[in-house]
Amino acid sequence: MKRLAEGLKNGLMTFLGLVFLSPIVLMVFTSMKPESEVLNPESAIPKHWTLGNFQHVLGWSEEAPFVRWLLNSVFVSTSTTLLVLTFSSMAAYAITRLKVPGGGVFLGIIVGAMMIPGQLFLVPVYLLLSKLHWLDTPAALIVPATAGGFGVFMLSQFMRSVPESLEEAAILDGCTTLGVFANVVLPLCGPAVATLGIFTFIGSWNDFLGPLVFMDSVRDYTLPVGIALYQASYYTQYGLTLATAVLGTVPLIIVFLLFQRYIVESMSSTGLKD
């Protein structure tokens, strides 16, 4: 009876997962169909498999340097993620554990600022970046992204639930503040940090408005803007459009799978589980 209930639970959740997956499978299949089959839903699986759409997209051209956009995106998203994780975790630690005077108020202000609609910042940040001569450089996409409050808010909420006794024990053992932070608190919040890392990378990778407004030359675009530019000129060719979409998503899937493993590892190594 217990095994049946367990099997039912596993089966139900697996089914839910497959339902969520199916649109993406359809997207991949459709990108491998010749254009004549694309809009025919009679067969989800292509009758004639082809990589022609991908070949067309990856072919180098000055108007659509797909590989170059890919590299831009990798650089921008990686730098943004590293900076956000460093800044946010340090700030969250200072607020929740080092009891910085006014830390609670500051956190309130950060969360308050999160409610401000993003478009409000667009024009002022544009003016600021042009004063700094950062327009059309990767810095314009990386540095302002570290100011967002999401990471500080999230890590603060998680750090609160780390037992204070563990930290005190480390201090009594002669650990420095930096040591406690890096060796005790961060590993204990491993799942949260990994989750934030995934969110930040994806957010940066998929950011559309930023590169659209702050980047001028086609060479400096990141992938989403590049894809949109591409879509605008090929929008009638659904197969090509979906091929760019698939190519633009694959790097994210790789990063996700890497981080996902890290979430699991960090949880089994904390000693909090089992």
Partner: peptide, 14 residues
């Protein structure tokens, strides 16, 4: 968990 999260990897245009 990975399957459920996968859609979040697509950008809004896609």
């Amino acid at each position: 968990r990975a399957l459920l999260f996968l859609p979040g990897l697509l950008n809004v245009a896609v």
